[in-house]
Amino acid sequence: MTKKNTKIEKQKPILSVNGLKVHFFTDEGTVKAVEGASFDVLAGRTLGIVGESGCGKSVATRSLLRLVDSPGKIVDGEIIYRGDANKKEINITSLKTSGSDIKSIRGGEISLIFQEPMTSFSPVHTVGNQIIEAIKLHKKLNKDDAKGLTLDWFKRVGMPDPEQRMNQYPWQLSGGQRQRAMIAMALCCDPKIVIADEPTTALDVTTQAQILDLLKELQEENGMSIIFITHDLGVIAEISDDVSVMYLGNIVESASVDEIFHSPKHPYTTGLLNSIPSITNKNRERLPTISGSIPHPHNRPSGCTFRNRCQNPSDDCREGKIEMKLIEVSPGHFVDQCCINCG
């Protein structure tokens, strides 16, 4: 593994998310999908975000591009983007959702790779057309040059028969080919950050490994940061440099990948790690599960959201008196203050 385990120099993160809150105002009530999440993305590194289904990973990362669907609103927090050392930092939360600033960030500075490459392409336009469109939005190229660049990218992402694929419709490609096309589309405008939202979930294991390798390779060539969202801790171990663990709309623990795997502090992280199946489990015991169930986002507990699944919460914590807040327990290792002693 080519982990960049070199010491984290005190550079400023390329993206800082502080206390982000995203709520969905539905007829049935307010869904607090993200409730005070904070994390940093460092230049050239990969941040893995793990967490149970529905904990707000997608919503939190889509907020970075202001792509939250309509009943949803960013109600609090800031997202600071420092793409260019020479330029001013941009607070993405203060941009207009349809203004030109956010449009130049979308795809140009930060781009997205989706889980479902089938439905993520329009079925009535050719793949080439949809990528050329992205290039023409961010680069001043004429049609032929944009086409040439697309072809280059098809070759770089290892698309077989690139010329032919350009003129095909997404449903004529295989799953892996579609995901390669998706990656080409996300990277063609040289973004500084790529958000990959479960990019390999829909693929079989071999293709999964190929796509992960491809992403790592391209990262080494281009030097972009990756935010990698997944349920799969195995994938996290393989691709991430840093890990943020998300639970019910909050980041509950953040650290380098080694720290997370070797000295997890939060009980939820521990639980996740214990539930990885391993071949050394000779006795065929049942995998340990985390006791309790996730509260519905409508009725989040006050204070620490994990307290009713916690094995030994402190008295203050049990009564919900302690607010959630990340504190640094060792250099670069942050844990929610309630649960430092729980795990």
């Binding site: 006791s291 309790g292 169930s293 509260p295 507990p301 307290r307 009713n308 699944r309 094995q311 919460p313 049990r318």
Partner: peptide, 9 residues
């Protein structure tokens, strides 16, 4: 496990 959390569940 606390009784309160049981009730909530």
């Amino acid at each position: 496990m606390s009784s309160e959390s049981n009730i909530e569940k």
